[in-house]
Design a protein around this nucleic acid. Structure first.
Lengths: 145, 145
DNA sequence: TCGCAACCATTGCTTTGTTAAATAATATCA
DNA sequence: TGATATTATTTAACAAAGCAATGGTTGCGA
């Protein structure tokens, strides 16, 4: 039909979607039991890893767009997983923090999440796994090197 | 804070998101001029590559979920890019086909799309590019081997 | 210090992702 | 044949993506 483009089965964007789909499947199953989404889990993980931070930094680290994060944080706040307070020094900034309820969800899932991550490393082998992460980083537009 | 999980900056799911973000940026810019979305472009490409097919096969090849595809096909039909007809032999099936207007969008963009794809191949180098596609395929849950 | 650009975050709008349930047509088999 | 399972697709409902526009805040230069 045409041969200008690589066949969709060897298309980079589609391959990235499918890989992500595969990787997220077990994680989503796990999180469903805690009643949170994949994105909410990312928010919790980033906050747990670095402590409280403003919305902009959080969005960047969790790879979420500002508007998405605003809404996600809203729903997480009403669920009691997060608190959000205005920064005294710069009143434009909102400081986001995990509540004990949020921390509990992290604690409840972190071991299983680590196992899942480990299973993918085993599946590819250490070397290929690192290689993959390196290659993916090359495609990251605003790499935080 | 915790060391059970890989830091979010070396997390496979996040790396996949960011890479995709980077790869799609120029493609989305291109498609905006034609007034179609990334997903609509995937639908057009798959149909152009394989010819008319039923909704299920199309969804699979374009990596879209059924409900998404139903809506996408609807809007593309009202835009006159697609036609959808019931299969005579199995009246459950819907056969989707590209219209001349849809084909025009493909023709208008295919060269630039090929250039973009090529630019990523160059960016990584042939060998690493193929390697990346192979690694990603390993993560694809329902790989069409 | 006034005015304006830059910055942080939110809101509005449309499209897509995701899961579950509904609908409709066909296949199976007692 | 007729009840039942299976298959193909659509609807419904809610969460999130993505883009543009808005609303407060701060910073800076004339």
């Amino acid at each position: 039909m045409n041969n200008k483009l690589p066949s969709t089965s060897r298309s980079l964007p589609i391959a990235l979607i499918r890989a992500r789909e595969g990787v997220m499947l077990p994680i989503r199953e796990m999180l469903a039991e805690s009643g949170i989404t994949e994105q909410q889990w990312r928010v919790l993980r980033v906050l747990s890893e670095h402590g409280p931070m403003d919305v902009g930094t959080l969005a960047d680290r969790a790879s979420l767009l500002f508007p998405s994060l605003t809404r996600i944080a809203n729903s997480m706040r009403t669920k009691g997983l997060l608190t959000q307070t205005r920064d005294k020094k710069d009143r434009r900034r909102q400081l986001v923090e995990v509540t004990p309820a949020g921390q509990k969800i992290i604690d409840d899932n972190i071991d299983e999440a680590a196992q899942i991550a480990e299973s993918y490393r085993k599946k590819l082998g250490d070397e290929k796994y690192e290689q993959l992460l390196d290659l993916l980083a090359l495609l990251d537009p605003n790499r935080r090197v």
